[in-house]
Simulated assay, not measured.
Amino acid sequence: MSFTTFVELNKTFEVAWSPEQVFELLSDVPKSVAHFPKVDKLVDLGENTYRWEMEKIGVQAYNIQTIYACKYLAYPGMKTVKWEPVKGVGNGVVSGSWKLEESDSGGTKVKFHTKGSLEIDLPFFLKAVVSPIVASEFEKLVDTYHKNLIETMSS
């Protein structure tokens, strides 16, 4: 038996780099993902589509590995990068976007939005305990990702 858990995040932060520099980094998926923690493998499926394979989390008999694929679409004129789910790959479905705009300080305001679902192959009675843990872990990973990006784009 399994269950599905859902997550949605909206985050905004500012960096010193220009919108063009930020766009160049975020639209290069492997370079951007290099800042994301606990990625076991990023597999290039061609046509700017990538499969994410995260490190397993959990203990002994109860562990979860998140796998999903997204197609990335970069719009330089709009300074936007979007990702759309590739259905039928792994146990997750993820979509989202980066939206960039020049900040008042001369750097870039970075707006991040993502939402996703994860099919978890554990007994249903664990849903009330596991779902909040999965959501919290995902948010921590995204916060670390953003911290790493901010550090890179602050120089």
Rank of each mutant, 00 (worst) to 15 (best):
residue 9 L to N: 12
residue 17 W to G: 08
residue 22 V to N: 09
residue 25 L to E: 11
residue 27 S to A: 13
residue 27 S to P: 12
residue 27 S to V: 12
residue 29 V to C: 09
residue 29 V to K: 09
residue 31 K to R: 15
residue 31 K to F: 07
residue 33 V to Y: 11
residue 46 G to S: 04
residue 47 E to D: 15
residue 50 Y to F: 15
residue 52 W to Q: 00
residue 54 M to I: 00
residue 54 M to S: 08
residue 55 E to G: 05
residue 55 E to H: 06
residue 58 G to L: 08
residue 59 V to S: 06
residue 61 A to R: 10
residue 61 A to P: 03
residue 62 Y to V: 10
residue 62 Y to H: 00
residue 65 Q to F: 06
residue 71 K to P: 02
residue 71 K to G: 06
residue 76 P to S: 09
residue 76 P to A: 11
residue 78 M to C: 09
residue 83 W to R: 02
residue 85 P to L: 02
residue 91 N to D: 02
residue 91 N to G: 03
residue 97 S to Y: 13
residue 100 L to D: 09
residue 105 S to Q: 13
residue 107 G to K: 04
residue 110 V to I: 08
residue 112 F to G: 09
residue 112 F to R: 06
residue 113 H to P: 04
residue 114 T to C: 09
residue 117 S to K: 00
residue 118 L to A: 04
residue 119 E to C: 02
residue 122 L to A: 05
residue 123 P to E: 05
residue 125 F to Q: 08
residue 129 V to M: 10
residue 132 P to E: 01
residue 135 A to H: 07
residue 136 S to D: 15
residue 136 S to G: 14
residue 137 E to P: 06
residue 138 F to T: 15
residue 145 Y to E: 05
residue 146 H to Y: 11
residue 148 N to W: 10
residue 149 L to G: 07
residue 149 L to T: 07
residue 151 E to L: 12
